[in-house]
């Protein structure tokens, strides 16, 4: 890391330069898709769940340095967490794990939290549907 003046912490710059968990998961158990082109940040978050534990998480993000860093960080934090624990991860926790974000960039951490929640929601909906269909199958 060159020692330069930056609006971002060293941790943000590290996650921006070397983002963890970039990419997609094939046959993910949940996908979160948040943001819109107008505000300039789009995040996609993929999760793999085994026995109620998030065993893998990957992301794709169109956005600024903070958007990329928060995406990277949230995928790191969430790995190994139960669904229940994962739902408790707040945007502040993501920002704090990055040693803070500039005030103007806090919305990026909100987006990361939303991306995770949306992926979990997707997972829960899918598993509910599966349960329902297996129930109706066994009923018939």
């Amino acid at each position: 890391m060159p020692d330069v003046w930056s609006q971002y912490s060293k941790k943000v710059m590290d996650h921006f330069q070397n983002p963890r968990n970039v990419g997609e998961i094939e046959n993910p158990d949940g996908i979160g898709h948040v943001g819109n082109p107008v505000c300039g940040d789009i995040m996609e978050l993929y999760i793999k769940v085994e026995d109620g534990i998030i065993v893998d998480a990957k992301f794709k993000t169109f956005g600024c340095g903070a958007a990329i860093a928060t995406s990277s960080m949230v995928t790191e934090i969430v790995k190994g967490k139960s669904i229940k624990e994962a739902l408790k991860i707040s945007n502040r926790a993501v920002a704090e794990a990055l040693d803070g974000l500039p005030a103007l960039k806090m919305h990026c951490s909100v987006l990361a939290e939303e991306a995770l929640k949306s992926a979990i929601e997707d997972y829960l909906n899918k598993s509910k549907k599966q349960e329902d269909s297996s129930k109706s199958e066994s009923a018939s």
Partner: peptide, 25 residues
């Protein structure tokens, strides 16, 4: 497919100063 500020930051790491019309900046 890419956002301006993330390009600017990467350019800055290479010592190049430029700007963007992206909202994120």
């Amino acid at each position: 497919f890419v956002e301006g500020e993330s390009m600017i930051l990467n350019l800055d790491l290479e010592g190049i100063c430029a700007s963007t019309g992206s909202a994120c900046s």
